[in-house]
């Protein structure tokens, strides 16, 4: 019963995702523009980061950025559902609020993973070779990172009544999370105050482990990354489900 409810919420997310072509195009164009402009531009100055070409260093970061934006937006679409009344339809149905929150997160993670896969297609052009073994690690990792971020998005959306705070979220949560995740610069030699901020940013662990899977380069070690991410995932899922069940 619970699984059935999660399934239908997920199905709706996917249906809307497939239908919304313009958003799909823009959400794929954005990381490609970053890769092309910032990757080439910074690459010309930095040259190499360790053994990697700058653009190769950046690529896993941009992949995670795609997941970040996509997961956040789909979680925050709860505000749209509230505004357009559809949330009420879900709330009066004989399905638990827990399954609505989980269904939203699974739906968001699926959308993000599909978008990530599209970006992944460009990896050979960057000179990153994705073997079958890597691929089988990258896909579940993309899903896991997206699911965790969706939890954060639902926590934010659970208490928001209107779109008004939306720009605030982009400017003060999503952008800093991306910029301070080690996606576009290494985090090893940062001044200590910045280092603190990076360390409390859960996304930085996602970027590090993704980079390790794809290129073998890591600054913290994959085991540590995975442990932190798992803790964050349990935490955000629990809180998001709690807030969502308590909300009106």
């Amino acid at each position: 019963m619970m699984l059935n409810a999660v399934y239908i919420i997920w199905l709706r997310e996917l249906k809307k995702f497939v239908r919304d072509r313009s958003r799909l195009v823009s959400s794929i164009a954005q990381p490609l523009i970053w890769l092309l402009l910032i990757g080439t531009g910074f690459g010309a100055t930095f040259g190499k980061v360790g053994d990697l070409q700058y653009i190769q260093f950046m690529f896993p970061g941009i992949l995670v950025m795609t997941l970040l934006f996509s997961s956040m937006f789909s979680a925050i679409s709860i505000i749209w559902d509230r505004e357009f009344g559809f949330l009420k339809e879900m709330l009066v149905a004989p399905i638990s609020r827990t399954s609505i929150a989980i269904g939203k997160a699974v739906g968001g993670a699926s959308r993000s993973t599909i978008q990530g896969l599209i970006i992944l297609v460009f990896s050979p052009l960057i000179g990153i070779n994705i073997t079958l073994g890597k691929f089988l690690m990258v896909v579940p990792l993309m899903f896991f990172i997206s699911f965790t971020i969706s939890g954060i998005g639902i926590i934010i959306a659970a208490r928001m009544e209107s779109f008004e705070g939306f720009n605030l979220i982009i400017n003060f949560i999503i952008m800093p999370m991306f910029l301070l995740s080690g996606a576009i610069f290494p985090i090893s030699n940062l001044p200590s105050w910045l280092s603190v901020v990076v360390n409390i940013n859960p996304l930085s662990y996602g970027v590090d482990i993704m980079r390790w899977v794809m290129t073998g380069v890591t600054e913290r070690g994959p085991a540590f990354d995975l442990m932190v991410l798992s803790l964050v995932c349990i935490f955000t899922t629990t809180i998001s489900v709690y807030l969502f069940s308590k909300g009106k």
């Binding site: 249906k15 809307k16 559902d81 357009f84 009344g85 559809f86 009420k88 339809e89």
Partner: peptide, 10 residues
């Protein structure tokens, strides 16, 4: 409900 509660994208 008093206000519409359909999903406009479906």
């Amino acid at each position: 409900f008093q206000d519409p509660s359909l999903d406009g994208d479906l």
